[in-house]
């Protein structure tokens, strides 16, 4: 046994080859740690992808699409929203909704610089070509008050085909007259979804919602009215009174 072991070790040139392999391993230095692999303190992470994947992907999807929350990787959305609005929403969230603020308590959340990185990164990652959307686009946000009665007409024209005459849902699309749903989303959310649709889930944007024979884009006024109609469906305890634990002050 011992003889075998010894003769195995000292067999022709073995010591040299063992030593050579060890030396190679050392010289190759493959074990040398690389500073790039060292983890960064949370507030020093300044690359878009890690920030997005860790903070946004959970709801908005790994590629900014196909998440339960509205997609950020959406050309039309990125055309109508401003950097300032993005910045504000990432930093303070949308009080009263499920969008939390990510930048109000550095150390626990992100720093102002990191929020900037996210905004710039969203723009750079999913550029939105101006040529794709010609003409005047409906503004992302509006102060105008809609009219629910007119909204009902626009709804019948644009939404009822998939969501049902009263928003009760069809085989094509789910209900949107649901109390829980309406209580948990803001008017701004509704406006945004009417404008951009959910292309990743098959919902068309405001230009394709009205089909033949009329086949035209919704107007800004119609969008505002549809939102007013949906808002009127919220039950008595309106969404503004929903407690939102931990949400930032408006």
């Amino acid at each position: 046994m011992l003889d075998q072991a010894l003769s195995f070790i000292v067999a022709r040139g073995r010591p040299i080859s063992i030593a050579a392999w060890c030396l190679c391993a050392l010289l190759a230095g493959c074990g040398q740690p690389n500073r790039a692999n060292q983890p960064l303190p949370p507030l020093d992470v300044m690359a878009f992808q890690p920030l997005f994947q860790e903070n946004c992907a959970g709801c908005h999807g790994t590629t900014g699409q196909m998440g339960p929350a509205p997609p950020l990787n959406d050309a039309l959305f990125l055309r109508v929203v401003t950097d300032q609005e993005l910045n504000e929403v990432i930093k303070n969230g949308r009080p009263g909704t499920l969008m939390p603020g990510f930048g109000f308590n550095p150390g626990l959340t992100l720093s102002a610089k990191q929020v900037d990185v996210l905004v710039k990164g969203i723009r750079a990652e999913w550029p939105s070509s101006p040529r794709e959307f010609s003409g005047t686009l409906p503004p992302y946000a509006t102060d105008a008050k809609g009219d629910a009665t007119r909204g009902a007409q626009a709804f019948a024209l644009a939404c009822a085909r998939c969501h049902g005459a009263k928003g009760e849902g069809t085989d094509t699309a789910g209900a949107i007259n649901d109390g829980a749903f309406l209580k948990l989303v803001s008017d701004q959310f509704l406006r945004r979804i009417v404008i951009t649709g959910r292309p990743d889930l098959g919902m068309p944007d405001y230009r394709q919602q009205i089909t033949e024979p009329e086949a035209r884009a919704l107007t800004d006024q119609e969008i505002t009215d549809i939102v007013a109609l949906l808002a009127s469906w919220r039950t008595s305890d309106s969404f503004a009174q929903e407690p939102a634990p931990g949400a930032t002050k408006p």
Binding site: N105, G107, L108, G246, T248, K249
Partner: peptide, 10 residues
């Protein structure tokens, strides 16, 4: 320290 909030402070 805003009301109804919990902040991390060092």
């Amino acid at each position: 320290f805003p009301e109804n909030q919990t902040l991390l402070v060092d």
